[in-house]
Simulated scan of single mutants.
Amino acid sequence: MEWFYDNNGQQAGPVSREEILRLIMQRQIKPETLVWTPEFGSTWRPASAAGLVSPLTGLLRMSSGSSEHWAWVLLVGPWLIQRLTLLILDLRQIPDSGRVGTISVVGMMSLILFFVSFMLDRTSIRESGKTPPGFWWWLFLPGYFWKRRQIVGRGLSLLIVSLVLLTVNVTEKIYQFPQIEKEIQMRHGQMDQPAPSPPSASGQDSQQEDL
């Protein structure tokens, strides 16, 4: 692929991707330097928006296209954290009443990791010169990875793993439903039981008279 770049107001090139990356390493091309390749049509883009330099870190993007690192963190990171937490709690034989605080903290950490990796993955796609899937796809990850694969052109393994994890989660919920329903019924039964009434004052008076 041929690249052109702005050199003090003058068009320079064509050069290969390897050459333009070398120029970036030598700081002859900066993140704000305009570059162009035939894929961009009639629009010149800053190097930071062309998949060459990350605007977040200023580091070179040595491989073409978007990275899948943050996509994998998004997909399996929160899931693994929650699974490991439950495994540790089971090994330590901590009762349900003692798990509430730990599970709440881990759930919040997982949620933060989920959204951070989600936004960074979308940024990675944007840096490669493509438009990432819409924000609301976070509500349904298989749909997000399906759209991502259409946009990026790869990522079949991400889509398959997301479908597998969705199937596992749904299957677990189905198997857990009878137990959850039983616990709800037990709680309702405890709430419906009448509270014990205090002894009557007349009864206490009669006991005192007998004494």
Rank of each mutant, 00 (worst) to 15 (best):
Phe4Pro: 00
Asn7Pro: 00
Val15Asn: 05
Ser16Lys: 09
Glu19Arg: 15
Ile20Pro: 11
Leu21Trp: 07
Arg22Met: 09
Leu23Asn: 06
Ile24Gln: 04
Arg27Asn: 12
Gln28Trp: 03
Lys30Pro: 01
Pro31Phe: 09
Glu32His: 13
Val35Cys: 07
Val35Thr: 11
Pro38Trp: 12
Glu39Phe: 08
Glu39Tyr: 03
Gly41Phe: 11
Trp44Phe: 05
Gly51Gln: 00
Leu52Val: 05
Val53Ala: 06
Ser54Arg: 02
Pro55Lys: 05
Thr57Val: 09
Gly58Lys: 08
Gly58Gln: 09
Leu60Ser: 08
Leu60Cys: 10
Leu60Met: 10
Arg61Asn: 14
Ser63Glu: 13
Ser64Leu: 08
Gly65Val: 06
Glu68Cys: 02
Glu68Asn: 10
Trp70Pro: 00
Trp70Glu: 03
Trp72Gly: 06
Val73Ser: 02
Leu74Ala: 01
Val76Gln: 04
Val76Trp: 04
Gly77Thr: 09
Pro78Gln: 07
Leu80Asn: 00
Ile81Leu: 15
Gln82Glu: 07
Arg83Pro: 00
Arg83Ile: 06
Leu84Glu: 07
Leu84Lys: 02
Leu89Tyr: 00
Asp90Pro: 01
Leu91His: 08
Leu91Gln: 15
Arg92Cys: 13
Gln93Asn: 14
Ile94Val: 15
Asp96Phe: 00
Gly98Ala: 14
Val100Lys: 10
Gly101Trp: 09
Ile103Asn: 12
Ser104Leu: 14
Val106Asn: 02
Gly107Met: 03
Met108Gly: 08
Met108Ala: 13
Met109Asp: 02
Met109Lys: 02
Leu111Cys: 14
Leu111Asp: 07
Ile112Ser: 08
Phe114Gly: 03
Phe115Lys: 07
Met119Ser: 09
Thr123Lys: 13
Ser124Tyr: 09
Ile125Lys: 07
Glu127Ala: 06
Thr131His: 05
Thr131Cys: 00
Pro132Lys: 04
Phe135Glu: 01
Trp136Tyr: 14
Trp137Glu: 05
Trp137Val: 01
Leu139Met: 14
Leu139Lys: 10
Phe145Leu: 03
Arg148Cys: 07
Arg149Cys: 07
Gln150Ile: 01
Ile151Leu: 03
Arg154His: 14
Arg154Glu: 12
Arg154Asn: 12
Gly155His: 04
Gly155Lys: 04
Gly155Asp: 01
Leu156Met: 06
Leu156Gly: 13
Leu158Phe: 03
Leu159Phe: 15
Val161Tyr: 11
Ser162Leu: 04
Val164Ala: 12
Leu165Ser: 04
Leu165Val: 06
Leu165Glu: 06
Leu166Ile: 01
Asn169Arg: 10
Ile174Lys: 11
Tyr175Glu: 05
Tyr175Trp: 13
Gln176Trp: 02
Phe177Asn: 10
Phe177Lys: 13
Phe177Cys: 04
Pro178Glu: 05
Pro178Arg: 05
Glu183Ile: 07
Gln185Arg: 15
His188Ile: 15
Pro194Glu: 03
Pro194Arg: 04
Pro194Trp: 06
Ala195Leu: 15
Pro196Phe: 10
Pro196Arg: 13
Pro196Asp: 06
Ser197Gly: 01
Ser197Pro: 00
Ser197Thr: 11
Pro198Asn: 04
Gly203Phe: 12
Asp205Gly: 01
Asp205Pro: 00
Asp205Lys: 09
Glu209Thr: 12
